[in-house]
């Protein structure tokens, strides 16, 4: 059952991810990206990380992608306003992407994947264990990243404010 689910989820994740890149309509791209997030959440659930799966849906699929969709809908992008790239730019882009692909292939070839150690039936991803890990083992990195978030939030509010009194 699990391998079948895994393969089905992986195939749909890859197809949706391809859809993001291939589709011409930006709205379709965004919708495909949302579907990709759902497939990834499915993978998290297969690894018994329900908390991560649902937070992925709430934060990425539910909030961030809604804002993406907002922006794309309001900009009303279509074929007429699509910028045309010169041939030089296209060739340069293909070469760069190809080089990146080669690097990634090389990295993946060198990696020795750890064998499966029965993680499925453990309670690794439960909220209780996650909380322990976050607030005991990794407390300082956790707090530091929250300060980073706070700084980003204050910055966003400042930038978003139109009339800052001098």
């Amino acid at each position: 059952m699990l391998p079948v689910l895994f393969i089905a989820l992986s195939i749909s994740a890859i197809l949706c991810a391809l859809g993001v890149v291939v589709s011409r309509n930006p709205i379709h791209s965004v919708l495909f990206l949302i579907l990709t997030f759902f497939c990834i959440s499915g993978h998290y659930i297969l690894m018994n990380a329900q908390f991560l799966a649902l937070v992925n849906i709430i934060v990425y699929a539910g909030a961030i992608m809604v804002l993406f969709l907002f922006v794309v809908m309001l900009l009303n992008l279509n074929k007429a306003t699509e910028p045309h790239k010169s041939d030089m730019a296209k060739i340069a882009a293909s070469i760069t992407a190809g080089l990146l692909l080669m690097v990634m292939l090389g990295v993946i070839k060198g990696v020795s994947l750890p064998s499966f150690d029965g993680m499925m039936d453990s309670e690794n991803g439960y909220v209780k264990n996650l909380g322990r890990v976050l607030f005991q083992d990794y407390l300082i990195p956790f707090e530091l990243s929250s300060i980073l978030f706070l700084a980003a939030m204050v910055g966003a509010v400042l930038l978003g404010k139109k009339n800052i009194e001098e």
Binding site: I27, L31, I34, Q50, F51, L54, V55, I57, I58, A61, G62, A63, V66, L69, M73, Y126, V127
Partner: peptide, 25 residues
């Protein structure tokens, strides 16, 4: 009986936006 039942409800609520957004657009 999900051990994260409340979060599941929130996830469904947040996906519910898409029905309205997609229909409206």
């Amino acid at each position: 009986d999900l051990n994260i039942g409340i979060l599941y409800v929130f996830a469904m609520v947040s996906i519910g936006v898409y029905g309205i957004m997609i229909g409206g657009w």
